[in-house]
Design a protein around this nucleic acid. Structure first.
Lengths: 247, 247
DNA sequence: TCATAGGGTTGACGTGGATCAAAGTGGGAC
DNA sequence: GTCCCACTTTGATCCACGTCAACCCTATGA
C-alpha cells in the first residue's frame, strides 16, 4: 500500500460549472443560471490527480473543498499501527474535503483510484458567496448533511450486517450512483481492489472474494475480476432485507 | 425496545444562549456578545423530553435542529427487519438533527436516555442569520464537519477494531466528553444499556458485558452496573494502540 | 414482606469470517 | 513474445464473537 508523494499537476484551466454536465449532482444543483455564473467565478482552477496519488492527506492544512470532475477517489483514515479504514469511495459530482472544516486540517487521506480531475473550491470564498446566495448556502448544507446520512448508512452496514449483505448493499449503492450519472446500473467496472472494498466493508479481501464467487454461483452477478454485471437486481435486494434471520 | 409515543412537553421558556454555560461547546462558540444576542432571538422555545421518549423519528418532517441543554440522547436507524443500529450518543451542548437537512426529513430516531431538555433552533432562521453573521455560519459548518469526522471515527472502530479496543475507545471518548463539560473524566454514570452500547459498537450485549468484566479483572476500570470508574487511563489507551497485533 | 421485571453477568457451545497457504490470472514493461 | 508483479481465487484450519441458557442483582410497588 505504498503511496507516491502528492504529485500535483497544476492546471490553469478554469472550471465552469455552467458548462459542466455534472451540475445536477454537484454544488450548483438548484441554482439559477445567474447564480451558477457567480459560482463559476469562485471555483478556482482544476487539478489533475494521477492514479494512486493523493489529493490531500490527513494533517494537511484545510483551505478548499473539491468537486470531482472526472475519475474517482477513496478516502481513508489510518491508525498509528498501520490499520487502514476506507471511509468512502467518491465518484464524479461528489464533494471531497468536508472533513477538514472542523479543525482547519484534513482528517483523512483522499487518493485517486484512477487518473482524475477535481475542481478546487476555496472554502472561505464559498462561505462568502453562500452568505449572499441563499440557494447555494442551502445546497451546501444539503451536501454536508447527505454525507452524514451516508455515514450512518455505513455504520448500519458495519455494525449490523453480515458479509454478504454488506457486499450486496455495496453493489446496489454503486449501481444506483452509476445510474444517476447516466451509466449502466447493471454493468460497471470497479475502480478499487478487493482489499479496499474489504476495508470499507469491514471484511478481509478473501471474504469479499468469496462473497463475489457465491453471488456468481447463485446467478446474482457475473464477476470477471473488476468487471461486474448485475444479473438479478431483485435477488440482491432480497438478500439485503431478508437474509436477516435471527435477532 | 418498545417506545412511548413522542410525548412533547411544550415549554414557553425562551432559551438564552447568552446565559447558557454550554455556549463554549455549542453553536455560540466563537461569537461575540452581540452576535450571541442575535442567536438568542432566533433560538425558539425549549422542549423537555422524558426518558425513553423521542425528540424526532425517522421520516418526521425536518424543520429545526436541536441543541441539548440538559440530559442525553441516542440516535439510531432501523432496518425493515427490525435490526437497530445506534449511530451515536449525544450529550449536553451537542447538536441533534443535522441528518434531516439533506432530504427535509429526519433519517434517524433521536431518543432521550434520561429526562432531557433541548433548545429548538428553527433551521430556516438559522440559515438566514448565518447569512448575516459570518462567525455563526462558520461555527455551524464546523459543527457539521465535526459530525462527519466523528462518524469516520466510528467507521474505523466498527471496521477495524476488535471488541475490547472498541469498548476502550468508547470509554475514552466518553471520558473526554465528560471532562469537557466539567465532570470527572474518571468516574461517570452510563446512561445507556449494554444492549445500546453493543449496538453502537457492533457487538452483542454479552460481549460488551464480558469486555467490561475483563477490564475490571485487569484493573483498568471499576464497573458497577452503569457506574464506571476509570482506574488506569493509560492502560486503556495502550489497549487501543497496541492491542493491534496481526495485520 | 415478597413478587415481578428489566437489566446484567457468566458459562458452554457453535459459527462466520479471519488467517494461512498455495495456485491462478491478466496487464504492463521491455 | 515472455517475464513480472500485483491482484485474485480457493481451500484448510482457527478463533473471536455470537448464540443459547441459566442465574443474579436492584428497583419498584402491591
Amino acid at each position: 500500500m505504498e503511496m507516491k508523494a502528492t504529485a500535483v499537476t497544476p492546471t490553469t484551466l478554469k472550471a465552469a460549472c455552467s458548462q459542466c454536465n455534472l451540475r445536477e449532482l454537484c454544488l450548483p444543483f438548484g441554482l439559477t443560471g445567474h447564480e451558477i455564473d457567480r459560482l463559476d467565478e469562485l471555483v478556482g482552477t482544476k487539478r489533475k490527480i494521477r492514479r494512486q496519488h493523493q489529493l490531500y492527506r490527513a494533517g494537511d492544512e484545510f483551505e478548499a473543498i473539491y468537486a470531482i470532475r472526472a475519475g474517482s477517489f477513496k478516502t481513508d483514515v489510518l491508525l498509528e499501527d498501520g490499520r487502514e479504514q476506507v471511509t468512502g469511495f467518491q465518484m464524479t459530482g461528489e464533494i471531497l474535503g468536508l472533513d477538514g472544516i472542523s479543525s482547519e486540517a484534513h482528517s483523512c487521506n483522499a487518493t485517486a483510484l484512477e487518473d482524475s480531475e477535481v475542481c478546487i473550491i476555496p472554502f472561505s470564498k464559498l462561505e462568502e458567496l453562500s452568505r449572499e446566495v441563499e440557494s447555494l448556502q442551502h445546497q451546501f448544507h444539503k451536501v454536508m448533511s447527505r454525507e452524514i446520512v451516508r455515514d450512518h448508512g455505513v455504520m448500519m452496514l458495519l455494525g449490523s450486517m453480515r458479509a454478504e449483505e454488506r457486499l450486496a448493499a455495496f453493489l446496489l449503492n454503486l449501481s444506483k450512483r452509476f445510474m444517476a450519472r447516466g451509466y449502466s446500473p447493471a454493468e460497471f467496472h470497479l475502480r478499487m481492489t478487493r482489499d479496499e472494498i474489504g476495508s470499507y466493508l469491514g471484511l478481509k479481501l478473501e471474504t469479499v472474494s468469496r462473497a463475489f464467487s457465491k453471488f456468481q454461483d447463485e446467478g446474482l452477478v457475473a464477476v470477471h475480476q473488476k468487471h461486474i454485471r448485475i444479473i438479478d437486481l431483485e435477488g440482491l435486494k432480497r438478500l439485503l432485507t431478508h437474509c436477516a434471520k435471527h435477532t
